[in-house]
């Protein structure tokens, strides 16, 4: 575990100098946007933090010749990819926790009421967000986290397994397949072939909090599986 923490720190330090100034600006802006305008602004945080702190890592091995460094560091080969997946998960999870907190705080305080220009279209739209129960913006933050953490873990797995040069191709194919399936599904719904009936989920926190925690655990399990597959395949390769 100590190896994994050291490797996560290694990854963080690799992107810190590039990402930190943008991160500080984004966190400040979205926190203020969420507290003073709409709670939904906080939901963008996971996407921004992940983009700033994960994307630069992808391909950093090739750019910097880290295959040699990985060969001389006193860590196991398995721990290198595992640490990367743990880094992705913990980074997104921490940001999700922060965005949930800010969204809930924004909903509770509703500071938008005290903003000037209450009749302006932007403020009117922002105020509408508070007609939703608190579970909606918080649930959106959780949903964003789930999509981002799974998407980035998938990208990392593909990049490590197939090579960064093929990663883009694979991701495009995956997106095209998902888009085609979504359109096919919507078309079938439109034709009345499928009648999707989503269960009405209670909007109470007593129901939603365990659901969100369960979804977080499921996301963690998916990332762990991606990490496990990648580590098993990558660690037997020569550097």
């Amino acid at each position: 575990m100590k190896d994994m923490l050291t490797l996560m720190r290694f990854d963080f330090m690799l992107v810190r100098s590039i990402a930190l100034p943008v991160l500080v600006a984004a966190v400040l802006l979205l926190t203020l946007g969420s507290l003073l305008l709409t709670p939904y602004a906080a939901c963008y945080l996971v996407a921004i933090v992940a983009t700033m702190f994960i994307v630069p890592l992808m391909g950093s091995e090739d750019r910097n010749g880290f295959s040699k460094l990985y060969g001389i560091l006193p860590v196991t080969r398995q721990s290198i990819p595992r640490a990367r997946f743990l880094y992705i998960f913990l980074l997104c999870l921490t940001t999700e926790a922060y965005s949930v907190l800010i969204a809930a705080l924004s909903h509770a305080l509703q500071l938008v009421r005290y903003m000037p220009g209450q009749d302006s279209p932007m403020i009117v739209m922002a105020r509408k967000a508070f007609e939703d129960p608190v579970t909606t913006p918080v649930g959106t933050c959780v949903g964003t986290f789930l999509i981002i953490v799974i998407a980035f873990s998938y990208m990392e797995m593909m990049g490590q397994l197939l090579g960064r040069e093929n990663e883009f191709k694979v991701i495009l194919i995956t997106l095209a397949v998902l888009t085609a399936l979504t359109f096919a599904f919507l078309h079938l719904v439109d034709l009345g072939v499928i009648e999707p009936r989503l269960p009405e989920l209670p909007a109470t926190l007593a129901f939603r909090i365990p659901l969100w925690l369960g979804l977080n655990l499921a996301a963690g399990a998916i990332v762990a599986v991606f990490g496990g597959i990648t580590a098993a395949r990558v660690s037997v390769r020569e550097l």
């Binding site: 100098s17 950093s60 910097n64 880290f66 060969g71």
Partner: peptide
């Protein structure tokens, strides 16, 4: 063990 290769294996932007 200390190892030195013919090319740099450290992050170039740091």
């Amino acid at each position: 063990l200390g190892v030195v290769f013919d090319s740099l294996y450290l992050a170039q932007h740091l």
